[in-house]
Structures are given as C-alpha cells and as structure tokens.
C-alpha cells in the first residue's frame, strides 16, 4: 500500500515552496555567481561586470525554482517508493507549520536584504 495522493502532493508542494524561498534567499546571502543578462550588450554571463548594467533576477529565479524542483522530485520519488502509510493529522500539521515557517522567514530575509542594501530602513 502506498501513501495516498493527497498526502504525497501536500508534502511535495510544501517542499517545493519552502525550498524555492530557501534557495532564493541563499542566492542573495551567499552571493552566488549565477547567469546574468547584460541588456546594453545583449549578452549573458556569470555574475556582475564592473561598469556594465546587469540583471541577475532571471538567473536567481531559474536557479531557485530549478533546484527546488529537483529537491521536490527526489522527495516525490522517495515517498512513492518508500512511504507505505498515510500521514496522520499531526504529521500534516507539523509539515505544514515547518514549511510555512521556512517560507515566511526566507521571504522576509529577501525583503530585509534588499531594504537594507538600498537604504529603505
């Protein structure tokens, strides 16, 4: 017997959301060199170039969503092959609350990083 569809979906979806926000916050705090578009040169490169306008937003989004999709896929495969029981109500609540906390904290970190950087505070 496998875990029921609603439980699998619940876990995979929350893992995807929490992981996306976590990886997105990581791109800022760890200053990862990601694909960047240089609109005045019509080219792509890695990271910032001195004196050239760059747009790192595309790379950050692709990285965060791509990495989170891989994590969610791994979790889905694990649940499909190993999980034999349905989640208890406490399990659903626990996973939901942890994922909400990660999502809200990482989303707040993104806001704090930019507001601090550009002097909004």
């Amino acid at each position: 017997m496998r875990m029921k569809q609603a439980d699998t979906t619940f876990v995979v979806a929350w893992v995807f959301t929490a992981a996306t926000t976590f990886f997105y916050a990581c791109t800022m705090w760890l200053k990862l060199k990601l694909p960047t578009y240089y609109p005045t040169e019509h080219t792509w490169g890695l990271g910032k170039k001195d004196g050239v306008i760059g747009q790192g937003w595309y790379g950050k989004g692709m990285f965060a969503i791509g990495a989170a999709a891989i994590v969610a896929l791994i979790v889905w495969l694990i649940l499909r092959t190993l999980a034999k029981k349905d989640l208890s109500q406490a399990g659903v609540k626990c996973i939901g609350l942890i994922a909400i906390a990660v999502t809200v904290v990482c989303t707040g970190c993104v806001l704090y990083y930019e507001f601090n950087k550009w002097g909004v505070f």
Partner: peptide, 11 residues
Amino acid sequence: VKEHWGTLGLA
C-alpha cells in the same frame, strides 16, 4: 523586492 517576490509567488 517586488521582482524577487514575483518569483517566490510563482512557486
């Protein structure tokens, strides 16, 4: 923040 939250909103 608007741009970053746009991507997070998609997820």
